[in-house]
């Protein structure tokens, strides 16, 4: 059995280099395992006390030492869902524009802009969200939504600019550049021969986009979406600033909510009781599990897509 793909060349530096890479890869696995074990150990007290109920009840009372994480889990999932709902279609549109429609000079400038956006630290998004975007939401977007879809129940409560919807939109802003950058690369790798033959058959731009470019790049698009999802689900600072930090589940998207990461960021410093601390660590474990499950799902989905494409 060997870890190496090829038998090594004569140069000893190569052997050393390969060993280093293997050690590096091994360390990643070891850290992951250690992290998991540590989380489980530290969360044992909480797991024993609340059991499965922890995941489905929504109480958060550090004084009476009663905890249920449903509110935070719900907040994490819903804010991420809103972000994906907005960011994925938009990213695909932007990428299509950049690759297919815009002139090369212009699209180069936009690409640079997108990459710059991707490099902005999340706390900046959070501060911008709180100081600029939240008042904008409160002044314009929320009153508009309220007057247009007032009866749906989704937009109840006073328009204060802070809450689930704002958090979801800020998250969308944050993951947009990541998804766009990857999808753009995917689209630009579609061989021009394929596209040109479609055009040659008399297809319109829309038909080529729909039936060739997106079809060809679907694996990459899914991969990019999951990349964004992974980032959105674990985002902490930006969400903490604008989600409103209230432990509750509310049908209204205007209502303040909470996410797992925001709860952790807010409450870790003052959690002095052992049970409280253990509860927060179990929340971390839950997040760990959610991301793991998402990874597995994305891999399975990719495999399925690959198979169906191979069959065609």
């Amino acid at each position: 059995m060997t870890f190496f793909k090829e038998t090594s060349t004569q140069n000893p530096v190569d052997t050393v280099f390969k060993t280093i890479t293997i050690v590096g890869a091994g360390i990643v696995l070891a850290i992951m395992a250690a992290l998991f074990i540590q989380l489980v150990m530290s969360a044992t007290l909480s797991i024993k006390t609340f059991g499965f109920k922890f995941l489905i009840t929504n109480v958060w009372d550090p004084i009476r030492q009663e905890f249920g994480a449903a509110g935070s889990i719900y907040g994490t999932l819903l804010s991420t869902f809103i972000a994906m709902l907005l960011a994925v279609p938009l990213s695909i549109l932007i990428a299509l524009f950049l690759v297919e429609l815009s002139n090369p000079v212009f699209s180069k400038w936009i690409s640079v802009g997108i990459e710059l956006l991707a490099a902005v630290p999340s706390i900046i998004y959070g501060m911008w969200g709180l100081f600029v975007f939240a008042p904008f939401m409160a002044g314009y977007i929320q009153p508009f939504l309220k007057s247009s879809f007032g009866n749906s129940g989704l937009f109840d409560g006073p328009p204060i600019g802070i809450g689930m919807l704002t958090a979801g939109i800020i998250l969308a802003f944050m993951i947009l550049p990541f998804i766009t950058a990857v999808v753009r690369d995917v689209f630009s790798m579609v061989p021009s021969v394929v596209k040109e033959s479609a055009y040659g058959m008399g297809s319109t731009t829309w038909e080529v986009t729909q039936k060739v470019t997106i079809r060809y790049g679907i694996q990459g698009i899914i991969g990019a979406a999951f990349l964004g999802l992974g980032r959105a689900i674990g985002e902490t600072m930006a969400v903490t600033f604008v989600i409103g930090n209230a432990h509750r589940i509310s049908a209204s998207l205007f209502a303040p909510a909470n996410s797992i990461t925001a709860t952790l960021a807010n409450e870790f410093t003052e959690a002095s009781e052992p049970l409280y601390l253990s509860v927060l660590i179990e929340l971390g474990l839950v997040l760990f599990a959610i991301t793991f499950i998402i990874q597995v799902i994305s891999q399975l989905w990719l495999r399925k897509v690959k198979k169906s494409m191979g069959a065609q």
């Binding site: 958060w60 009372d61 550090p62 004084i63 009476r64 409560g157 903490t240 930090n245 209230a246 409450e267």
Partner: peptide
């Protein structure tokens, strides 16, 4: 960190 009444409330860090 009490369990705040579920009113029209937001929380800041």
């Amino acid at each position: 960190a009490p369990a705040w009444p579920k009113t029209n409330a937001v929380a800041g860090k």
